[in-house]
Structures are given as C-alpha cells and as structure tokens.
Simulated assay, not measured.
Amino acid sequence: MSELTDELEYIFDWLKSTNLEMADCYNPGLTRQQIDKIVKDLPFKLSEEIYELYQWRNGITDLGFNNYYPLVEFLFPDQLFSSSPTSFCTLQYSISNYHDLWQLEQSTMMNKPYDNYTGWDQKWFPIASFENKRILYIVGDLDPSPIYLIDYIFLDNPLRVYKSLTNMISVIAECCELGLYQLIPDEYGEEDDMIIRIDEEKLELEKSIYRKYNS
C-alpha cells in the first residue's frame, strides 16, 4: 500500500478501536475504470491521490439518523473551526456538486456583488462539504494538488491549506496516534450524541503537527 492508503487505514482502525458500536459507514471503493467513467466530462484531470482516495472508499453512505453519525465523518475533521463535520462525499455527489457550484458562479459573474469579487474557479473540485457552507477542495490538473479548507462566503481566505491529500491525512493520523482527539457530548445535538474534538489543551501541538507536514 502507498503512504496515503496506509494513513487512511490507520485512521479507520483508530476509529474502530474506540469503545463505540460503530459500523463501516463508507461506501466500497471504486475501480480506476469506474472513476474514469464518472469523471470523463470534467474539464480537467484529477490527481493520482484523488484516484487513490476513491479507490479506497467512495465517500460516506447515507445511514439516516445514528447517534454516532458525526464520528464516522471524522475522516476529514473540522473540529478546529466548526462543531459540524465536513462529510467525505461520494465521487458521484462531488461531480454533481462541482457542476452546481460552477453554474452558480457563472450566474454570479454576470452580476458581480462588488468590483474585486473572487469566486469559485472552474478547476476547483470539492471532495468534502458541510451543506456547501464549508468545503474541502482540490485543484484540477495539479498532481499532487493542494487541499483547501474554506468557508464558501470567504473563498479568497482559506481556513487552511495542505500541501497535498497525503499531507492532510498524515496530520490527522499523527493526531490520532498522539491522542489529541477526545470524545465529548455534542452540546448542539440530540441526547447521547457524541463528537470528536481536539483537546483544547493540545491545540498548539496540533498546529505544530500541521506545520511539520505543510511548511
């Protein structure tokens, strides 16, 4: 296995090792031929890392209500910036979402809200999203591509930039290994809902791990 797949498996094993009744809520991975067929109409090429990601798993499945649902979305944790997880999208949904975002951008460009408006670029491809308010995206035709975490209303000011998907997953895996994440009740959820968050006393360590892989 490659470094990326090794780290993805490490994170998933870490999730399974918790004392929770968790199921594998990710869809089975796709073949390269299936990915080629799904992405054939994109106006750019996806990086080998993105192919590897979707060969590992094809996003998270919709299980409906589940007390521990936020935990299985932990693959792309957003707990530093929001209490809501950023869901790992299926490739089919990412394609649909990409076209929706680009269509919206074309409409917006016809009537810019202000002179220096910077909108959604045609080569930005979303791989994870929380209601399109917060998005993880890669840049088409770059291999490897940086990973950008953004608030949609602040497109020109990313919350974080990772050098690559492998670098981002390596940060998350090392945080798991060093025990930076803690399981706590979700104060905004239903009774017994739980979420995983960075231990507030270890925020500086998380930032140093981020810099280690992305300086």
Rank of each mutant, 00 (worst) to 15 (best):
S164G: 02
T5K: 14
D186H: 05
Y114W: 12
A128P: 04
L91G: 15
T5Q: 10
Q33G: 09
E21D: 15
E174M: 03
E21R: 11
I153T: 15
L205M: 13
L20N: 15
I147V: 15
L155C: 04
D6A: 04
I135L: 13
T61V: 10
M22V: 13
L46S: 11
N214R: 01
F44Q: 05
N167P: 09
L4F: 08
E49R: 05
I195R: 05
L101F: 01
V161H: 00
T166E: 05
I184A: 08
E7Q: 14
Y152A: 07
K45S: 11
Y69M: 14
W124L: 04
I138K: 02
P43D: 09
E204D: 15
Y93V: 07
L104N: 15
Y117I: 06
R197I: 13
N116A: 09
D121T: 09
R197F: 06
W56Y: 14
D115G: 01
P144M: 08
E206H: 14
S17K: 05
T108V: 14
W120C: 03
D193F: 11
L136H: 09
T5S: 10
E21V: 10
Q33M: 10
Y117D: 08
D143S: 08
P146Y: 08
I138G: 02
C89F: 12
P158D: 06
N97H: 02
I50C: 08
Y93C: 06
L149G: 00
K202V: 07
Y188P: 03
G29D: 04
D41G: 07
S129Q: 07
D156F: 04
S215H: 04
W56L: 05
K112H: 12
Y114I: 06
M22N: 09
I172C: 00
P77Q: 04
E21N: 14
K16M: 14
S129D: 10
S17R: 03
P28S: 06
Q103K: 01
I147W: 00
N67M: 09
S47Q: 08
L203M: 10
G179Q: 04
L159T: 12
E201Q: 14
L149S: 01
R160D: 00
N116E: 10
V39I: 15
W102F: 13
E73N: 11
L75C: 04
I150A: 11
I147E: 01
V72T: 07
L159Q: 12
I135N: 11
K212F: 05
Y26K: 02
M109F: 03
N58G: 09
T86Y: 01
C176T: 02
D41E: 14
G59F: 02
N132D: 12
E52P: 14
S215W: 03
D199P: 15
L136T: 00
Y98I: 05
